[in-house]
Design a protein around this nucleic acid. Structure first.
Lengths: 140, 140
DNA sequence: TGGCTTATTGCAACCGTTTGCAGTTGTGAT
DNA sequence: ATCACAACTGCAAACGGTTGCAATAAGCCA
């Protein structure tokens, strides 16, 4: 169970461990990578047809605030991913829609300059950048 | 008229110069800075009550694709801005919601590394980053 | 175990944005 | 000036996501 620790953390944070939340987390854990709300909803629905989309959205919102999932905009559709130990950022290709990872070290210089020169503290935890991957760039 | 050139460019690109489009551009030009769809809609409505929100959205989408406006997400609400000669990026404060500008030079190192090491070509034209401005950071 | 409190849920209505469609209108050619 | 045609519009319906509310149930304590 990849999400057992996440469940414990939820409880420790003072939130209730409802079946709906467990099932949403199970759905997130079942499929590695970025998964859409509709997929989560469908999977939970299989085991519990009384589930409401609103609950799925509220759960995802909660998990996002607790930094347990990342919200990621992939070509117009919002997708979610369980946060694992190894933090990374995303490059989302506007050609094929795939998401690639890159290390936070790529942004340290950028962050430093904004902080030093403007006193601005950028949110870079869940940072994603659009663009064109090498394969799609070739096939143009 | 700050947007006369934009109008000409629209026509040159093969798009029709409809009254609705002219009025949307006028609304964008009337107020400097970032402006919301509702404000644009209301202002156009004053002079032409048959205008539909869908038309406003479609026009903004078109102008965005032609790189004549920037779309900017300021604390959950989407805002638009006419692109003028001096390009800049945005820092959006999650405390006060204000948007500050910074020069594209801040991102050259970041872009170079992504391109060289992954072959990924990031879209940085209309780049915005969330965070906390110095004033809001102080008052915490 | 049972009862209390309050977070959480399902429902339905809502919001901002997008889309299909049939009618309209800008534009370029005649 | 008129015509023809595709681009464009307004409308209404749809979409993804959010919110207010009354009913439910998780967690805690006795």
């Amino acid at each position: 169970m990849r999400h057992t620790k996440t469940l414990e953390r939820l409880k420790e944070s003072g939130y209730r461990l409802t079946p709906q939340r467990v099932m949403v987390l199970a759905a997130l854990a079942a499929r590695p990578g970025h998964i859409g709300v509709d997929e989560i909803y469908r999977q939970v629905y299989e085991g519990y047809p009384y589930i409401d989309v609103a609950t799925v959205y509220r759960t995802l919102q909660l998990l996002k605030n607790l930094h347990m999932v990342t919200e990621l905009d992939v070509g117009g559709t919002t997708r979610y991913e369980l946060i694992e130990a190894d933090r990374h950022h995303h490059m989302v290709c506007r050609g094929c829609g795939n998401a690639f990872d890159f290390s936070p070290t790529y942004l340290v210089e950028f962050r430093q300059r904004l902080t030093q020169e403007f006193g601005f503290q950028p949110d870079l935890e869940h940072f994603a950048i659009g663009g064109l991957c090498s394969r799609c760039a070739e096939s143009l």
